[in-house]
Amino acid sequence: MAVRIRLTRQGRKKKPFYRIIVANGKSPRDGKFLDILGTYDPLQEPIIVKIDQEKLKNWIALGALPTTTVKSILKKAQTA
């Protein structure tokens, strides 16, 4: 079972808001997930990324792989 760290879309039309979640690789984008790690709000002027670092490290240690989008969001969050 491939566990992925990825985004799920929340919010409404033209106003996206994303959760950073851990889910099975075969489940749909907005489907069942295992854990919520944080949020990502691209519409705020300084983009807001909130992540529970402890949960993130734990899931990565267990073998969860971030998607390319989540990987770039995490890099931007650490540099800011």
Rank of each mutant, 00 (worst) to 15 (best):
G25T: 14
R4V: 15
Q53L: 12
K15A: 15
F33A: 05
I48H: 14
M1D: 11
V3G: 06
F17T: 02
I51A: 06
N24E: 15
K57T: 08
A64K: 02
F17M: 07
V70G: 07
M1H: 14
R9M: 12
V22G: 00
D35H: 01
G38M: 12
K50R: 13
F33S: 04
K71D: 07
Y18M: 05
A64L: 08
S27L: 15
I51H: 04
T8M: 12
G25F: 14
K71W: 01
A77Q: 05
F17H: 09
L65T: 12
K13I: 02
I51S: 07
D41K: 11
R9T: 10
G63K: 08
L7E: 05
W59F: 08
I21C: 03
R29Q: 12
N24Q: 14
M1K: 11
V70T: 05
K32H: 13
D52R: 06
D52E: 15
I36F: 00
L65Q: 12
P16M: 04
Q44T: 11
K55E: 15
D30S: 04
S72T: 07
Q10S: 07
K13S: 08
P28A: 07
K75R: 09
S72H: 09
P42H: 04
L34C: 03
L56R: 13
L65C: 06
K50N: 09
Y18N: 00
D35L: 10
G11Q: 09
K50T: 07
I47W: 02
S72Q: 10
I20R: 15
S27C: 13
L65Y: 00
M1C: 11
I20F: 04
V49S: 07
K76H: 02
I21R: 03
P28R: 01
V70W: 05
Q10G: 06
L56W: 03
P16I: 03
A23G: 09
L56E: 10
K13Y: 03
A2F: 11
K26T: 12
L37S: 06
A23T: 10
Y40N: 13
K13A: 12
I47H: 04
N24K: 08
T68F: 03
D35I: 05
R4A: 10
D41V: 10
V49H: 06
K71Q: 14
E54C: 00
K50Y: 00
L62I: 12
L74P: 07
K76S: 02
W59L: 14
T8H: 03
A77V: 02
A61G: 15
R4M: 14
K32D: 11
P28N: 03
P42A: 09
Q78R: 03
P46W: 14
R19C: 07
G38Y: 08
P46A: 12
R6Y: 04
T8R: 13
K14D: 12
Q10H: 08
T79S: 04
E45D: 09
N24R: 10
I47G: 01
K57M: 14
Y40L: 15
Q78L: 07
